Structure formats: C-alpha cells, structure tokens
Amino acid sequence: MQFTSTQKRTAAWCLIAALVMLALWLLGPVLTPFVVGAVLAYVLTPVVNWLDGLGRGRMPRVLAVLIVETLFILILLSILLLVVPIFAKELPLLREQLPLLADRVNNALGPWLAQFGITVSLDVASIKAFVVKYLSANFEDAFGSVLSSLKLGGSVALAIVGNAVLIPVALFFLLKDWDRFVALLLELVPPKLRAAFDRFMDEADTVLGQYLRGQLLVMGVLAVYFSVALALFGFDLAVPVGVFTGLAFFIPYLGFGLGLLLAFMAGVLQFGGLYGVLVVAGVYGAGQLVESFYLTPRLVGERIGLHPLAVIFALLAFGQLFGFLGVLIALPASAVLLVAIRRMRASYMLSKLYQG
C-alpha cells in the first residue's frame, strides 16, 4: 500500500504529538516549572522585545529581561498580598464566630426539621474544639504544626520550594535567549517542511494570542463583578476579595475555590450569621454559572474556535491526564491541536478532490 506525502506528514505530526503527550504524562512534576516558565516567556517576550527596541540597542537585553521579570513578580506578590491582610485580620475573629454560627444554625434548623421527623443536632462542643485546635492565635503551636506537616510531606514542601526557585530562573533564561531557542527548534524542521511549519506556527501564534486576550477579558470582567456584587451587599473587604477571585480565575477551579473561601470568611466574620453565607453562595454561584456557560465559552472558546462543550471537555480531560499541569495548558494546547486538526482536514479534503 502506497502512502501519499500528505499522509506521511500527517502520520509524522501525529507521532510527534503522541510523544509530547507521553512525555508530559511521565515527566509532569519535573516539567512543571519549565512548562510554566515557557508559557510565561511566551507571554512576556513581546514586552521584553518592546522594551529592548525602546532602548534602540543601548539597553542590554539582560537589563530589559530583569526589568520585565521583576515587575511581573512584583505584580504577583501584590496580588498575594491582597490575601494576607484578610487572613491576619479575620482568623482570630473566625475562631470566635464559627462556634456561635454553628449554635445559631442548630437552634434555627433543629426545630424546623423536627416538624418533618428529621432530627439534626450539631455538636457545638466538637466544633469549638476543632476551631481552637486549627485556628489558634498561638503562633508557636501554628509554627509547630507547619514543621510537623513539612516532616510528613517533605517531598511536597520540597517540590513547592523547588518550583518557586526554578520558575523564575527558567523564565529569566528563556526570556534572555528566546530567539536563540526558537532558532534551535526551527533547525530541527526539515527544509521541505519549513514553509508549512512556519504557516502552522503563525496560525497557532494568532490563536494563542486570541486565547490570552480572551482570558484576560474574563479575569477583568469577573474581578469587577465580584467586587461590585459584594460591595452592594455591604462587604467591607469586597474589593480585595473580588479582585483576587477574578484574577485567580486564570487557574480554573482552584482560583474560584480560594476566592470562595475568602468570601465565606469575610461574610461570616462581618455579619456573624447566615446572611453572609447566603450572600456569598448566591454571588459566587451566579458568577460561576456566568463564567462557565457564557464568559469562558464566548470570550475564550469562540476566540480560539472551540465549542463551549469542547472547552469544558479540554479542562476535564487534560486535568485528568496531567493533573495541575494539564489544567494550566488545557486551553492553549487545545488551541494548537485545533490548528493541527484544521490543517489535517484541509489536506485530506484537498487529496480527496484530486483523487476524485
């Protein structure tokens, strides 16, 4: 059986894609800092190039890289510092309010459920013991708990510290030598395939740029929504909690969970009752529905040409296969795969036309 050149190229690209997927699956934890660094370098390289061009050759590229990376790290730290005051201010209050809230829930729901033959009784004493144990203001005990957890899960702690060090280092070298790395990769492409490869990469670059712009739009809209919605219901920490939640949506699910936790804390501590819990549940539930079924499919999915169901499937499938790394690369990788599938389909239809 004879294979056409188109079929051979398709088989070669499929083999390369399979090898890449296998490498991600086997080496996911090891590759995480480098993949994150590469994604960040892809995003920040245009800024470095712009700053480098602004200096018109008088500014060393290393200096431009240091400026951009330092500003990026400062922005990340600023976002993280939005959360620190919330915990510092509210954890001691949370220790006092949670038992009272459990007592109120018990007194309110117990008699009402008893009318239907349902007996529910919260063990307030156990809740108080749990709160005192895990939310104690005694920093010596807290420090001891941290040390014991680090001993038990040393590999996890080491991985976190290692990634925190490796990602900035990898980002620095990738930004500094981005053009050289790209040139080395291009040398691996056979001359016969160079023109087709360049066209493919140009189209993939366009799709990825649209993805990033769409994701930034989603984050901005959600940051405004959560801040305004919480402020309308009288939350004192509406702006920091809302901005953090919106920006954290860059990491699907995890960002929403952290924002929801902070909002619940703020609501319970400020209002001391079910009002704060119900408001947070309503605001965040509506926000999650709007984000999942409208914002992400419309602003991100449509920009990269993916159906809303394909967006949801990509997040779940990549997360299942590659864990946290898969969630990070799900939509960008799907965008590149979409370009590949489009080209394979076009080549197939063209070959059918010639055969007919």
Rank of each mutant, 00 (worst) to 15 (best):
9 R>F: 00
12 A>Q: 10
12 A>E: 14
13 W>H: 13
17 A>P: 00
18 A>N: 11
19 L>N: 08
25 W>T: 08
27 L>N: 12
31 L>A: 09
35 V>C: 11
40 L>P: 12
43 V>E: 12
44 L>H: 03
48 V>G: 01
51 L>N: 00
65 V>T: 09
66 L>H: 04
66 L>I: 04
68 V>K: 08
71 L>F: 13
72 F>Y: 13
73 I>A: 15
74 L>P: 00
74 L>F: 15
80 L>A: 10
84 V>C: 09
84 V>P: 08
87 F>Q: 09
87 F>P: 01
91 L>C: 09
94 L>A: 14
98 L>Y: 11
108 A>E: 09
108 A>N: 11
109 L>C: 03
113 L>C: 10
114 A>R: 13
115 Q>R: 14
126 S>N: 01
128 K>N: 10
130 F>A: 15
132 V>K: 08
132 V>S: 12
140 E>A: 08
140 E>D: 09
143 F>Q: 11
153 G>W: 14
154 G>R: 08
159 A>K: 08
161 V>F: 09
162 G>V: 05
163 N>R: 03
164 A>E: 04
164 A>Y: 07
171 L>V: 07
182 V>W: 06
182 V>Y: 13
183 A>G: 13
184 L>I: 04
187 E>G: 02
191 P>A: 08
192 K>V: 08
194 R>T: 12
195 A>G: 01
205 D>G: 08
209 G>P: 06
212 L>R: 05
215 Q>I: 05
218 V>I: 00
219 M>Y: 01
220 G>A: 15
220 G>S: 15
220 G>M: 10
236 D>Y: 02
240 P>G: 04
243 V>L: 13
248 A>R: 02
248 A>V: 03
256 F>H: 07
264 F>G: 12
268 V>L: 15
268 V>S: 07
274 L>C: 02
279 V>A: 11
281 A>L: 15
286 A>S: 11
294 Y>A: 15
295 L>S: 05
300 V>A: 08
302 E>P: 01
305 G>T: 10
305 G>R: 06
307 H>F: 04
308 P>E: 10
308 P>F: 04
318 F>N: 03
329 I>P: 10
330 A>Q: 05
332 P>R: 04
336 V>H: 07
341 I>H: 13
349 M>L: 14
355 Q>L: 07
